[in-house]
């Protein structure tokens, strides 16, 4: 029983990270119909910028407490990534907004390669150790389940970020303009919405979330390197599709479901397949579920507005 609970906790933590990243994918898709494949790379830039900042802090203010260090690192990484998100949209995607769908998609893949290579030049190819500012030693186990403070932080921060984003989109002027733009660029601009600014803002917010996710990811696993964004980016994309791409609630649900399925899949695949499969097939579960959902609900679990785009 405690094993099952532990697997659920493992899944929730991974799922929260996926959900946080998936929000960035889904926001951009909701408004532009573009899958921003460079999103995972923004996460990586966020983590490495934070790492760089921590390195500088170590030298100029070694007496700072770990939480203050973390706050400053985030305070640098988030604006850097936001600027990056803004530039990405302005330089790479804006001029392709009315191009055939394939063009921005391929550009996104190109931007992803570009960012990875730039990061490789700046930070080298080695894996870097990310300082564990939030303690990673497990707390007193509750009914056999081990949880570390950093894992709790990840779940809480993700939940707060998601709640904040929902409020932003549903309750503010900016959010209303975003929803209007998502519905129809032209009509929105006729109604006095500055579409370019709104799309820019979407990229900026998405990149900010990715930066937070990057720092969380790096402090949980204690590592950062130039290719770290690729796999979580891919998983988060899967999560966004699973939940219904373009739908914020769907991205969160998709992230959590994917995390749980992965964790439970790896934990129980051997029992479920009567010893035929082992944990080297753990990813099979995530993609079987994705396949099934897309067959029976082509718009994802909560999907709403895919058909008009596709």
């Amino acid at each position: 029983m405690d094993i099952l609970l532990q697997q659920i906790v493992n899944g929730l933590v991974v799922g929260s990270v996926y959900a946080l990243i998936a929000l960035g994918y889904t926001m951009v898709y909701g408004i532009l119909g573009l899958i921003n494949f460079a999103h995972g790379e923004v996460l990586m830039i966020g983590a490495l910028t934070a790492l760089q900042t921590l390195g500088v802090l170590e030298r100029i203010a070694p007496d700072l407490g770990p939480l203050a260090q973390l706050a400053i690192a985030l305070g640098v990484a988030v604006p850097v990534c936001m600027t990056l998100g803004f530039l990405m949209e302005r330089l790479a995607y804006r001029r392709l907004r009315n191009a055939p769908r394939l063009a921005p998609l391929i550009t996104a893949i190109g931007v992803s390669f570009l960012l990875q290579t730039v990061a490789m030049i700046l930070w080298g190819r080695n894996y870097h150790t990310f300082p564990q500012l939030i303690p990673t030693t497990p707390l007193e186990p509750v009914s056999g389940v081990f949880i570390t403070p950093v894992q709790i932080t990840i779940v809480v921060v993700s939940a707060l970020m998601m709640a904040g984003l929902l409020v932003l989109v549903n309750r503010t002027r900016l959010g209303r303009a975003m929803r209007a733009t998502a519905e129809n660029h032209r009509v929105a601009s006729l109604m006095g919405v500055d579409v370019n600014a709104i799309i820019g803002a979407t990229f900026v917010i998405g990149a900010g979330l990715a930066a937070v996710a990057g720092v969380m990811f790096a402090s949980n696993y204690g590592i950062a390197h130039y290719a770290m964004g690729f796999l979580p980016g891919l998983k988060a994309f899967t999560a966004a599709v699973l939940g219904g791409i373009g739908n914020l609630g769907g991205a969160m649900l998709g992230g959590i479901v994917l995390g749980l399925v992965e964790s439970l899949g790896a934990g129980y695949i051997e029992h479920l397949s009567f010893g035929f499969l082992n944990s080297s097939y753990q990813d099979i579960f995530a993609f079987i579920i994705l396949g099934l959902v897309l067959i029976f609900r082509p718009t994802g679990l909560l999907g709403e507005r895919v058909s008009d785009r596709a």
């Binding site: 094993i3 696993y221 796999l231 934990g267 944990s279």
Partner: peptide, 14 residues
């Protein structure tokens, strides 16, 4: 696991 993984919690729990 595989040579690109970062999360091993599930298999370690097992």
């Amino acid at each position: 696991t595989n040579d690109k993984a970062t999360d091993f919690m599930a298999i370690l729990t097992r």
